[in-house]
Structure formats: structure tokens, C-alpha cells
Design a protein around this nucleic acid. Sequence first.
DNA 1: GTATTTGCAAAAGCTTTGCTGCAAC
DNA 2: GTTGCAGCAAAGCTTTTGCAAATAC
Lengths: 151, 151
Amino acid sequence: MKTERRQPSLLRELSSKGFRLTSQRRALIRTIQEAKNHLDVASLLRTAKKQKADIDRATVYRTVDLLKKLGLIDELDLMHLEGERHYYEARADRDHLHLACYQCGAILEYSTPTLERLKEEIARENQFQVGVLRLEVGGWCNRCRLKSARV
Amino acid sequence: MKTERRQPSLLRELSSKGFRLTSQRRALIRTIQEAKNHLDVASLLRTAKKQKADIDRATVYRTVDLLKKLGLIDELDLMHLEGERHYYEARADRDHLHLACYQCGAILEYSTPTLERLKEEIARENQFQVGVLRLEVGGWCNRCRLKSARV
DNA sequence: GTATTTGCAAAAGCTTTGCTGCAAC
DNA sequence: GTTGCAGCAAAGCTTTTGCAAATAC
């Protein structure tokens, strides 16, 4: 039983912290929340432009930066499969990790209690207060592995 | 009882795969292996120049790329504490993770069997062949946490 | 001697910044 | 009406690339 009520949280969080809800921020946040895949700044800009035509790259960078600092979205470096760009996703309820296939570029997400336990262990053993945890794995997905084996 | 014999492995690996052992590559590999901290391309270049004065940035990038592709070094993105640069380290015998302090910039390393277990679980549950695993944590180290609390 | 690798310089990405004017509150 | 924020354009960084010359083998 899940209480689906994650939609407006980014906007509410933003305004509750004293930040203005500009039309640009609305468009960007909506884009991030409705995205099927992880978005980099270029795709984020392209998609958000459909809602707000005259939005600027600089605004995207500034907004992403703000949301990142507030801990509302996470920055991912998906093993640099295509250039050096960063990808973003709304912060999930649970930590999860990304599996990036070197061959086909697919990004799988995986979530497991083991990660939660690891995080607690990190904090306990190092007396370290964990802010963000980023776990990226590069390798070969099942399909590509089988395909290569067949050759 | 450890058999300390990790030094020339990168060079040997390189030549056994048919790559030439140029003086530039020797200098860079030596620098990486003797480094106390993780190095980005700029520091790598600066340090390697002490051994080989006329080494070029492009060569560093090309060498790092080669070593990365051969799996001899790992690329780290240490939570982008200072700009967007990447850091490199010789591939360790054991997987480990990096704890980056947002405040003082210190990078702690931590190694635990839990990480090994997590890696196995990832492979098993997703039928994914793991190549590289990169786990970076951003947060606050003990010293900085205490310092802030005192204010 | 030949094929690989380097240096140089130029270009290509991605990201940041200063400043003026607009818009949220 | 204020103050924060966006747009624009320029600059800043890091990384990549083409090509002639140098070098490892």
C-alpha cells in the first residue's frame, strides 16, 4: 500500500524555504518529475522548452544546482557512457544504484536493503555523516553478454 | 604476510598487451603508483613533469584513457568538491569506497566485506557482469561535524 | 625500417558568471 | 515597491582531435 503523494513536494519544499516559484522552475521541476529516463542538462532544457519556450541554459544550471544543494535531486555520473555530462533524478524514497551497460548504454536501477545496511555501516565505522551516496556500476547487461558469447 | 610486488605490474601489463613503453608512460605510471593522494589530470601532469619535463597534457589524457580501458586504473568522481575534474588511482586489490568531506575536502577510504557482498548480489540479482564499481559518499567527517556543532 | 605514440595547437564540450531588466511576492 | 531571478552573451575549464615529427621495437 503506497500513498502516492510525491508530485508537488519539490515545489512545496522550494517555497517553504523562501525560494520563488518562477515559471521556469515549475517547468524544470515538472520535467524532472515526469521524466522516464535520467536527464542531463541538454535534454532537460530541450524538454522543458516545450512548456516554457524561452528558458535559458543558465537557468537550468542554476536550478539544478539549487535543487542539488537542497537535496531534492541527485546528481549521477553514469560511468561517462556518453561524454562527461551529469544526469539528474528526483531523490527517491530509497537509495538505489545504477547499472550502466558499456555495450548498449542501458541504465538499470537496482534497490536493495544491503545498500541501506552498508550506508549505516559507513556512518558508524567512520564517524562520518553521510549526505549523498552515489553508487554507479559499469559492466555488461545480460542481453549484451549473451550476444557477445554467441559470436 | 604480503608479497609486495605490485610496482611494475602496470608497465608489464602494458607491454604484454603490445603497447610501447615510452618514457612518458613510464613517468605517468610511476607518478600514479607513488602518489599519496588521488590525482587529477592537472596534478598528474605537474608531478610527472618533474621526471619528464616536456610531457604534454594530451599525452596524459591519452595514457589515462588507455590505462582506464585496460582496467589498470580506476576513475573517481569525488563528489565534485573542486570543479568537475576526475581523479585516478591504481586499481586496488580490494574494492573500496571514498568518503568526501564537503567542508574540509578530505577524502577517506573505507573497505569492507559488505561491499564485496553487495557486488556479488548486484551481479546475481541482475544477471549483470560487473566491470567497474564506483561508490562515492559525500558528507561531513567527524572533525568538521564536531567543529560545526561547537558554533 | 615501420608502426605507434607524442607534441602542438586548435577546437569542442560542458559549465559558470556579470550585468541589465523582468517578475514573484 | 523590493528583491530575487532570468536572459543574454562572454568567458572559463576540462577534454578531445588532426597532423607532422619523433621514438620504441
